[in-house]
């Protein structure tokens, strides 16, 4: 049976893993290569490394960090941040990534999705969407996409952009609720379900993970195919294996033993 994936995310700033609350107030959480290896050993199904300030500061992805992190990983490894062209993506793949996550650059120039996909396969392209619920009207239907690490509103609706990303050849959607991010109060299941229902490709839910119950909820009510978390793993609040054991008891199919 296809299992639900638990993805450990490393938000990287200047070569170090950091964690913020609602995209600000960064706290140091350690070395990316070391943390990635530790998460994989404790049962993470995938590792995502996001260079969170790359777009903002206008510099390229930290290839050296990617290389060092990939060296010890034998689970899928995604890298995002500052990838603006198919050449940028190629450099990240050469450094050892299996997939790239693109966000601001895909919104600025949606053709980028197809350009990377046609060269490296759709499975290698994740479109990351950072979303805030709509302030007026239906909060899900009007949920708005933000770019540049959550700094800039785009005026685009989340569900529509997810659908366009799929049409343009994205292999997966990484959906982050900015309202929930860093709160540890649970994923935005309604938002996740709306996006998951709108597309045929897998949806990774992100933002708000605090305990095992939140994961169960986002897999059931949120119809997520995978769920991503950062801080709850880094600070050892919850190791991945213990989380998976709880999920299995809840009847969620997960990769265990791992």
């Amino acid at each position: 049976m296809l299992t639900k994936r638990i993805i450990a995310c490393l938000d990287v700033n200047a070569g170090r893993v950091v964690k913020g609350v609602q995209f600000v107030d960064l706290v140091d959480a350690g070395d990316p290569a070391e943390l990635a290896a530790r998460h994989a050993a404790s049962g993470a199904d995938e590792i995502v490394l996001l260079d969170i300030t790359a777009t903002h500061e206008g510099r390229g992805t930290l290839l050296e960090t990617v290389q060092r992190t990939a060296r010890r990983l034998f689970v899928p490894f995604t890298v995002g941040g500052g990838i603006r062209t198919a050449d940028d993506a190629a450099a990240v793949f050469d450094a050892g990534a299996d997939k790239v996550s693109i966000n601001s650059a895909a919104l600025a120039r949606p053709e980028l999705i197809g350009e990377i996909g046609s060269k490296f396969g759709a499975q290698a392209v994740i479109v990351a969407i950072d979303v805030r619920r709509g302030a007026s009207g239906d909060p899900i239907r009007n949920a708005e996409v933000y770019v540049a690490g959550g700094r800039k509103p785009t005026g685009r609706r989340a569900v529509e952009w997810a659908r366009e990303a799929e049409e343009r050849g994205a292999g997966e959607i990484l959906l982050t609720s900015m309202d929930a991010d860093g709160t540890r109060a649970g994923f935005d299941c309604k938002l996740t379900a709306a996006v998951s229902d709108a597309v045929q490709i897998p949806v990774i839910a992100s933002g708000g993970a605090g305990n095992a119950r939140h994961f169960t909820q986002v897999f059931r009510e949120g119809k997520a195919d995978a769920a991503l978390a950062a801080s709850i793993f880094h600070f050892g609040i919850h190791d991945v294996r213990a989380l998976k054991e709880e999920l299995l008891r809840d009847g969620i199919p997960v990769r265990l033993p791992c």
């Binding site: 049976m1 296809l2 299992t3 639900k4 994936r5 199904d45 759709a122 499975q123 292999g171 997966e172 045929q200 490709i201 897998p202 195919d225 995978a226 990769r255």
Partner: peptide, 10 residues
């Protein structure tokens, strides 16, 4: 079902 088939299966 969703296609592609992505993830860990037995």
């Amino acid at each position: 079902r969703k296609v592609p088939h992505v993830g860990w299966n037995s």
